[in-house]
């Protein structure tokens, strides 16, 4: 038995933690773009803001898009609800709220993350410090993940954590593709030109998939990249992988509670779209439309889970 509030707290704690690492990766990919190419730097940071889904609130507070302001906004700005500091704080608040559902190790890992990042992000991060700070964010996120995997019972508590993690991740990957889909479209792609290569690399890097992509030794091209990030079940950040895991964990919940819930249907429908198609079909139907529909599916799945498991009164 678990309180609905607790289920919601676990779900959001994990979503926020996942978001903090995703933010760090977006900044990393953005910085990398800047180092490897010279033109249109600010446009690149604009697309980073869009991927993080915070463009609008950024524009309300800033006149121009420049590297330093964007990085500060994504890392430290508390008026940005998705900044690393905001989400780490929110993750910790949720962890405090669900303290009774967490092992000591997990709680301490989350609390430690909050303490270390509060320190590291107390002042604007200097250029020279940025790589260290981004690494710290990644490490902390790994520490929490390690504690979760190493100490938590595999029951509904763990299932809600996993569902939150994968829903956030699926959303993050879909947004990366949504913002960059035009780079992957055949009509604009000028295969072999350096610009596209950088863009492709940035896409892979934002999803922490550049190394594994290289191992597969595929031709680097829009289709293979899109296929990899959307459909490859081996890649722990592909949308298909996320949905397989969401479906599995929702299945565990159904089994544990011995009751079917509508969210499972929504999830199965999307999972089916991901597993019964191939990349050619997706491109024929329109990559952008496909990605958009995934983002929408993520959204409605989140709302249905919240309702089915009574997160709120």
């Amino acid at each position: 038995m678990m309180l609905g509030k607790t289920a919601g707290g676990l779900f959001w704690m994990c979503r926020y933690l996942e978001r903090s690492a995703n933010n760090a990766r977006l900044i990393e990919a953005g910085s990398r773009m800047m180092m490897t190419r010279t033109t249109e730097e600010n446009a690149e940071w604009g697309s980073v803001l869009e991927t993080a889904n915070v463009r609008q609130i950024y524009d309300e507070r800033h006149d121009a898009v420049d590297r330093q302001s964007v990085i500060d906004f994504l890392l430290r700005d508390r008026s940005n609800p998705s900044s690393v500091m905001s989400v780490v704080e929110a993750a910790r608040s949720n962890a405090r709220m669900v303290r009774v559902a967490l092992t000591r190790e997990v709680w301490e890992a989350v609390n430690d993350t909050w303490m270390k990042l509060k320190d590291a992000l107390a002042r604007p991060v200097r250029e020279t410090e940025l790589p260290n700070v981004l690494e710290l964010i990644r490490q902390q996120s790994a520490q929490v993940r390690g504690a979760l995997h190493g100490t938590m019972l595999r029951n509904d508590i763990f299932n809600f954590c996993r569902i939150g993690t994968f829903l956030e991740r699926s959303d993050n990957v879909a947004r990366i593709l949504d913002v960059k889909y035009y780079v992957l479209l055949p009509s604009v792609s000028m295969v072999g030109t350096s610009i596209d290569n950088y863009q492709w690399e940035a896409i892979l890097r934002s999803a922490a998939a550049e190394r594994s992509f290289a191992w597969l030794n595929k031709d680097s091209g829009p289709r293979t990249i899109a296929e990899f990030l959307i459909l490859d079940r081996r890649l722990p950040r592909s949308i298909a992988f996320c949905y397989l895991n969401i479906a599995r964990n929702l299945g565990y919940l159904e089994a544990e509670y011995d009751e079917a819930r509508p969210c499972m249907e929504i999830c199965a429908e999307t999972l089916n779209r991901l597993t019964s198609t191939d990349i050619e079909t997706i491109f024929q139907g329109g990559l952008h439309e496909f990605i958009q529909s995934i983002i929408q599916a993520n959204n409605s799945l989140g709302l249905q889970i919240e309702k089915d498991y009574r997160f709120y009164a």
Binding site: M1, M2, L3, G4, Y257, Y309, R310, A313
Partner: peptide
Amino acid sequence: AMRTTQGYT
């Protein structure tokens, strides 16, 4: 009763 993931207990 408290609101749980499985209803009120």
